[in-house]
């Protein structure tokens, strides 16, 4: 089982924040220009709260692509920087978070997207991530921020860049949604 709880004890090297966090002055607009804040339901309220907090106080190296969120509140793109002093120093990655209306009771679907998928023993080359808090250890008290921190910590503690041993087979046969995978969590020594 991959355990990533002692985030606070992991030494996260300092890294610059990519973009100055901007205040969202107006609520995000949906495609047709209607404010999403109107008539929103509980899961949307919760996502809004999380978004504001992530914009105001982003964890080091993490930035939300606010444009993507403005288009669609249930799909966020989040940029995450490889920390200095780790194997991923200087690399930029992008995560895609998908939420459904059962959030935060249902975990978000989280995958790496884009051209640069980190080479890591728990990350498949299609972007799927083997991390227990994304499925069976998910709790509604977790958040986008805690997921980002766990992923950052997972990358930071890596000692050898390699793909999971079953990468080829998995990528060929898996469902598009990583939550449909019954993960056998790899040990946490990596």
């Amino acid at each position: 089982m991959l355990k990533l709880f002692k985030k606070t004890k992991d030494k996260i090297p300092k890294s610059e924040i990519i973009i100055e966090p901007k205040e969202l002055k107006t609520p995000p607009l949906s495609k047709c220009g209607k404010p999403l804040l109107l008539d929103n339901t509980r899961w949307e309220r919760r996502l809004h709260k999380e978004l504001m907090s992530l914009i105001k106080e982003p964890p080091p190296g993490v930035t939300v692509d606010t444009e993507s969120v403005q288009q669609n509140l249930s799909e966020w793109k989040i940029n995450i920087k490889g920390f200095e002093g780790t194997l991923y120093e200087g690399e930029d990655f992008q995560l895609l978070f998908k939420f459904n209306n059962k959030y935060p009771f249902d975990s978000p679907e989280v995958t790496f997207i884009g051209n640069n998928i980190p080479v890591h023993p728990h990350v498949y080359s299609n972007g799927h991530i083997c991390l227990s808090i994304l499925t069976e250890d998910w709790s509604p008290a977790l958040s986008v921020q805690s997921v980002c921190l766990s992923i950052a910590s997972m990358l930071s503690s890596c000692r050898e860049k390699k793909r999971p041993p079953d990468n080829t087979l998995y990528v060929k046969t898996c469902n598009k949604n990583p939550k449909k995978t019954k993960w056998w969590y790899h040990d946490d020594s990596v």
């Binding site: 089982m1 355990k3 709880f5 002692k6 009771f105 227990s132 808090i133 069976e136 250890d137 998910w138 709790s139 509604p140 008290a141 977790l142």
Partner: peptide, 14 residues
């Protein structure tokens, strides 16, 4: 398990 790990895995998740 530490208590913290136990809480994250066996208490907090629904």
């Amino acid at each position: 398990y530490t208590i913290e790990e136990f809480c994250h895995q066996e208490v907090e998740p629904m």
